[in-house]
Design a protein around this nucleic acid. Structure first.
Lengths: 191, 191
DNA sequence: TGTACATCAGTGAACGCGCGTTCACTGATGTAC
DNA sequence: TGTACATCAGTGAACGCGCGTTCACTGATGTAC
């Protein structure tokens, strides 16, 4: 086993390095603002290397999205049984892993039939469904409540990230998210 | 005054035609999936014409976003005093004017200092603030309630448009949106 | 009403550039015996 | 332990293409007198 990042003809870790370069590039200019050749330049490798590993840009973004959904599902799961904290974890992930988040919810950028990606996304969705069931005022409204909870946290995360709330919402997004879910789903509201 | 769409050396309506071509292109492949040259081809004009009118792609997308926010503000205003119907109008606009919506909430695509754009966006925001005030359980929570209502409708619209809800939500998005805002903000909930 | 001139709207040829893709190659690694 | 061979990982030169930009131009429109 080679050490990671060891130089030489065989990099040994190039797939990882290219994905990291992609994440950095996405963070700086979004998923459209760079080319595979630019990524190769950043990673210090031949311009043909990214194509060798991922085929094309869609293949690379598929890998990014798959990895993103896996991290995302892990985050939601580890928030535990507290439905409010799952909502907070949703926002924390979006803000803390913005490049992943930007790709994950633009399915036109990647191959939605990737099996790893699908299973990770399904795992995340299952957490949300469980939360919806807990929050729902009646069994018939579980599905609608799930959509409501998902929309609320997702909408807040999206508006926060694109700067729409910069005038009206100040401070830590996690804290605001916690207040939001308590306001909407806390004691005295839907339940 | 020339008739619109009349052919000839001086088109007379080219700015409009190019924006419409852009909206069609965005609808087909998103805001990044085309070039100014391709747009000129679609519009049947010289490839230099779009640059003459808009400078560059950012300038064109600024015009799209400005027009979008104007239509958006009109939609919200004309929903009247019914706060629930404002939420429904938000979703109706997003689903019915998807190309505008896709650009409007990606500020990195356009010039956010465009005065027409800013004033239209401000007009739309004002409607949402008024709704938040009406829905808020107490004066101290008006700001948070505004963010909640905005996040709920925006999140639902965004998730709907990117296909995240295609497995769990069937039927007319407007109808679901109406149910959502009633569930969250209707009698027996926050208020 | 006519004429002259300025401005506006759009053209099309030409440019240099970065892109994705191809392909013969090279050097390192793994495996069989 | 040594050797031979196959496979893997990455290189770098070459290609054709579409792009944005520039620029001299052309034809239509508006205005002054």
């Amino acid at each position: 086993m080679r050490e990671i990042n060891q130089p030489g003809y065989h990099h040994g870790n190039l797939r990882r390095v290219i994905i990291d370069a992609a994440l950095r590039a996405i963070g700086e200019s979004g998923p459209a603002g760079w080319s595979l050749r630019e990524l190769a330049r950043r990673a210090g490798v031949s311009h043909a290397a990214p194509a060798y590993h991922f085929g094309d840009k869609t293949g690379l973004l598929t890998a990014v999205a798959a990895e993103g959904f896996q991290l995302f599902a892990d985050s939601l799961v580890s928030a535990g049984d507290d439905v409010f904290e799952v909502g907070v974890a949703y926002v924390r992930f979006a803000v803390g892993h913005r490049p992943y988040f930007e790709v994950m919810f633009r399915p036109e950028l990647y191959r939605t039939d990737d099996p790893d990606l699908r299973s990770a996304r399904e795992r995340a969705a299952q957490v949300l469904v469980t939360c919806g069931a807990k929050l729902s005022p009646s069994p018939e409204q579980e599905r609608l409540t799930t959509i409501a909870a998902w929309s609320l946290t997702h909408g807040f995360a999206h508006l926060w990230l694109n700067g729409s709330l910069s005038e009206s919402a100040h401070g830590d997004p996690e804290t605001i998210a916690r207040s939001l879910v308590r306001l909407v789903f806390g004691p005295g509201s839907v339940q």
